[in-house]
């Protein structure tokens, strides 16, 4: 315990007071190694987003602790950058300014003005959004907004990248393109990633491990499925691979059984 890079230890979250409140999460234990891509999947309302917010520091734990690189998480910070579900770009700033705000905030005093400019462009280039750098969020598509959200998070050079259903609101084609981009970036930078999703294929394609959550209240980790597919993974090649099919089946079966139990 506590040896891995990101360690979630016996985390429980109860809203509205420990005694009378509603218990959302109970006894969550999860170890994530450096450079690992871990997905968290579960039915809506099972507390996936709550868990991510706890790791981000946006929500306090009721019991337990989150430890990242030997330091306890107590407040939000740029070393745990979040890509929010609804992009959360500031609409009054251009694409460039949205990323630059994060760069200025994180690297003020560490990089010169010119370096910060270069770093902003570099991160926009990683998500192929340099061409729209002067546009405002309202002028670009949902997929592009999410790309900028990813660029903003990457620009903080986070120790762990937290993705909160980043592609949930996108159409299937855009989602596939963005998944490929995320895989490329992960291969290039080797980030540690924790991703919330409700899409089984997305989880299997992107992850090293898939964490399946039981239904709330008092949700916890039900099962963990490793995906031992070699990288780089190509969408068209892996989806017939026995490992892919096996992992996919395990996740679908888990979710299906949970759904039956919830309905009963």
């Amino acid at each position: 315990m506590g040896k891995s890079y990101l360690s979630i230890e016996n985390v429980g979250v109860t809203f509205g007071g420990r005694l009378a409140g509603s218990e959302v999460l109970r006894g969550i234990d999860l170890q994530v190694n450096q450079g690992e891509f871990v997905s968290i999947i579960g039915h809506s309302g099972c507390g996936k987003s709550t868990l991510l917010n706890v790791v981000a520091g946006l929500l306090p734990v009721t019991v337990g602790a989150v430890i990242l690189d030997k330091e306890a998480v107590e407040a939000p910070g740029p070393e745990r950058a979040v890509v929010f579900q609804n992009h959360s770009l500031l609409p009054w700033l251009s694409v460039y300014e949205n990323v630059r705000l994060a760069v200025d905030q994180v690297f003020r005093g560490k990089k010169s003005r010119a370096e910060r400019h270069q770093w902003t462009l570099h991160n926009l280039d990683l998500v192929q959004m340099v061409h729209a750098k002067d546009k405002r969020p309202a002028e670009i598509s949902g997929g592009m907004k999410q790309r900028v959200g990813i660029a903003r998070a990457l620009a903080m050079e986070p120790k762990v990248l937290l993705l909160d259903e980043p592609f949930g609101a996108l159409d299937a084609l855009t989602r596939a393109t963005l998944q490929d981009s995320v895989m490329e970036i992960h291969a290039k930078l080797g980030n540690t990633v924790l991703m919330i999703t409700h899409d089984v294929d997305e989880a299997v394609l992107l992850s090293d491990r898939i964490v399946m959550m039981t239904n709330g209240p008092a949700a916890t980790i039900g099962q963990v499925q490793g995906v031992e597919l070699p990288r780089p993974r190509r969408r068209l090649e892996v989806d017939t691979h026995p490992t892919y099919i096996g992992a996919r089946h395990a996740v679908v079966e888990f979710l299906h059984n949970r759904r039956l139990r919830a309905a009963a």
Binding site: P76, G77, F84, S88, L90, Q105
Partner: peptide, 12 residues
């Protein structure tokens, strides 16, 4: 709340 969260993550 999203904008507030951005501010919190950035530690503004």
């Amino acid at each position: 709340q999203d904008y507030r969260n951005v501010g919190r993550v950035l530690r503004l």
